[in-house]
Design a protein around this nucleic acid. Sequence first.
DNA 1: AGCTCTTATGAATCATTGA
DNA 2: GTCAATGATTCATAAGAGC
Lengths: 284, 284
Amino acid sequence: MKQSESIIKHGDCLKILKKYPDNHFDLIVTSPPYADSRKNTYGGIKPDKYVEWFLPRSKQFLRTLKPSGTFILNIKERVDRGERNIYVIELILELKKQGWLWTEEFIWHKKNCHPGKWPNRFRDAWERCLQFNKQRKFKMNQESVMTPMGDWAKTRLKHLGENDVKRFNSQAGSGFGKNVSNWIGRTKAYPTNVLHLATETRNRNHSAAFPKVLPGWFIKLFTDENDWVLDPFVGSGTTCEVAFELRRNSVGIDIIKEYTELAVDNLKNYERYFLEKQGAYETD
Amino acid sequence: MKQSESIIKHGDCLKILKKYPDNHFDLIVTSPPYADSRKNTYGGIKPDKYVEWFLPRSKQFLRTLKPSGTFILNIKERVDRGERNIYVIELILELKKQGWLWTEEFIWHKKNCHPGKWPNRFRDAWERCLQFNKQRKFKMNQESVMTPMGDWAKTRLKHLGENDVKRFNSQAGSGFGKNVSNWIGRTKAYPTNVLHLATETRNRNHSAAFPKVLPGWFIKLFTDENDWVLDPFVGSGTTCEVAFELRRNSVGIDIIKEYTELAVDNLKNYERYFLEKQGAYETD
DNA sequence: AGCTCTTATGAATCATTGA
DNA sequence: GTCAATGATTCATAAGAGC
């Protein structure tokens, strides 16, 4: 079996992506540095400059993404002087003007979010995963992310009533009907646009690390094996590790040299570990 | 004990609110007609006219809300030609220009969202609950919405199944899902900004905008007893019923005469039922 | 009271058909 | 052409009935 490629590059994705051809990537999935009024954080982009900073980069994303491809942007606006900042929703409007379609907004519900208490605010337990596309039709493998059906199905489908074996239309005129007998034998259901994932506790040095399952979910959903995945703000390499595990090729870029060095090390260790583990189960 | 007032008014909230004084309400909580939906009943405001339609009304909300008060807006943009509509995020930007502070965005996770399958989209399982304020400091009773772990937890924890640890279960009516295994040894926990509620599926005569626990949760959180609550798009009166139950005064307005008539009936029945039920436990 | 089983239905979305 | 109506798709919950 052909092994997939994982390429880590150090530098500004704006500059590096200019060397890439049009329509190259099948998926761009990233968690960019969030705007922050505090200095010395990762990137250190001020909220009022964020959109301006982002747009030339997203223009390269648009150019290098295949027409059937998808761009997933994991982001959440910070609180500034008691208010949610608006740079994220301004960014959505500007990305649309740039030519992107704003297809969907997934919610990443962080089940084990950081504890804490503030006088006029509860814990922030969710982030946006904004989905953008170049076309209305795009590649989507829905079956790859199906989830187990709820326990209700087991008992529900044991004894079918009269209305279950034929199509039964809602009596309230909602236009909604069902045919329960279609579900027999099914054990999995399609997911919703709310993802319940725990954050990973082992905190590597990257400030905006997301758990592996998050990019993994979108990689499975929006790409096939041997497709190309890009993370232009890859940090310590999580996206490339998951892409490798799922047999996708990947390019990871970061402007912080220490991160890319860490990413290269992590990736090497991961590939070795993963291949050894796989070796126990499969032979060429 | 003084009984709280529940006032239902028929008409356009824009007109009716002009008769109300400044700084009158402690909380405005509402689920307005969404653009392009409920055409048959609400006339169906076009998405590109929505902000224009909303702003004069929100100006009255701003004027009649107390400085310490809160405005909760439950809304969700629909899909149009494969894209999420942008009128909601445009509305946020315009409300800020009008003088509102965009304090927070709660996520209402709809556990029993509509089923369905589409070629490039999953089921929509969440809605926005946008929080706006006039000042950085506002009334907030965080303790009132803490999740109690009384007898329920004792019996629940006896039967800890596999699903309890990894899935989200919610106490009936509490509005919050929890990792149940974390509850052991604790008595109360502060919630997060993600609410896990099922939509109510029992109302036959009208399309219930939101389940009772949703306005109830915000009423407990942002008002005290005998405070004044406003729902300018009250529909069949859900908000006023909950307000009454929680001993808050309320004003509910709707432009559909049938709805306000229904709301008055519902409210009468509810008050009678509720007071009778209460009578068993308290005197005077 | 407490359990199981039955049943109605919910701010949905998309492709097709008809005006 | 554009726009409106119609049919097809498919989960999870809570109330209520039955035991």
